[in-house]
Structure formats: C-alpha cells, structure tokens
Amino acid sequence: MPVVLIVEDEPDVAETYNLWLADEYEVRMAQSGDEGLAELDETVDVVLLDRMMPGLSGDEALERIRERGLDCRVAMVTAVEPDFDILEMGFDAYLCKPIRSEQLHETVENLLKRSQYDDLLQEYYSLVEKQATLEATKSTAELADNEAYVDLRDRVDNLETDLGDTLGGIDDDEDFIATLRGLSDVEE
C-alpha cells in the first residue's frame, strides 16, 4: 500500500483527510513541519504539506525534504490560490482549501503515477544502456542470434509502450516540469 504523510496542524482537518484516504493508503499524520520531517523516510510516497503552520512553514519543510534527496512527491495545501509560480517553488502539486475528497484522491493518484513514470523511465534507461553495450561489442550477425539481445529489444519496446500509457505520455505542464525536476542533481 502506498504511504501518504499528512502534515497539518489542525487535527480535525488532518483526521478528515485520513478518513478519506485510509481505505486505499497507509496514512501517517504529523502536526507540524518538524514532526513531519521526523516521520519522513524513504517509504513515504506522497506528502500533503500544509503551507501555513506555526513553527517550520510548508515552504521551509519542502526545502528540507528536497535537501534530504528523498524522491517522495509533495503537494502543498494552501488556503489561498498561490500567486506565485508553484512549479518554480519545487512543489509537485497544490490543493486549495477547502479540499473535497475526490480532489484529494485525484491528486494523490496523479502523484503516484508520476513516481511510476519515473521508475519506468529509469528501467527503460538501464535497458537501453545494456542494449548499447551489446551493440558496441558484437556484430549485427552475432546480435541476431543472441537470445539475451533479442529479449532485451522486446523489453525496450514494451517499456516504450508503458511509458506512453502512463500519464498519457506527458501532456500536462505540471507533470512535465515535475518529471524534469527528478532527473538531475544540479543545484538550482
């Protein structure tokens, strides 16, 4: 079961999200940014991060999460429509309060699909690299008879199809930027 961490200082609100999500996800809850960071480990898939909290703010918490290099997806939960470019800030998605159950489910599902896309893309890359190694060391005739190579080509083709089917390829700006953000470790 995918793990969702809810970081929200209002207990009633957090409990509502929990009730909505608990059937499909393992839900963890934290009441502040600091507590959220303590709860966070590599098993967490999606973080719902309230922007306005006493103590560590949502923005600061996000920064710490990125610093730790965890590949979880972070959705910001905010009371006001953000007047800044959400993509520039490093969030993967945002939700405006009050949130409806359906919206919350959609957002979490989309973020999980992005992680799935990243995993597929990583697998695709490693197979392409193996294929290139074989191609560099063997002749075309040798390759045609090489079962491992033929099998590899099939898997590369299948993965291409899977990638095209996940997120509908990448036809959304937020999906596009969020995917690129995961690609390199260059300081921004």
Partner: peptide
C-alpha cells in the same frame, strides 16, 4: 558536459513525450 548521459537521455525522452502532445 554539465550533466550525465542518463539525465540527458531521460530529458530527451520526456521532451519527446511533451512535443508529441
């Protein structure tokens, strides 16, 4: 020269999906 070939490969692939749509 600024980033590794894994990142560049993935970048090209993601861009290709974006241009497709």
């Amino acid at each position: 020269t600024y980033t590794d070939r894994k990142a560049v490969f993935k970048f090209c692939h993601v861009l290709s999906s974006r241009f497709d749509s």
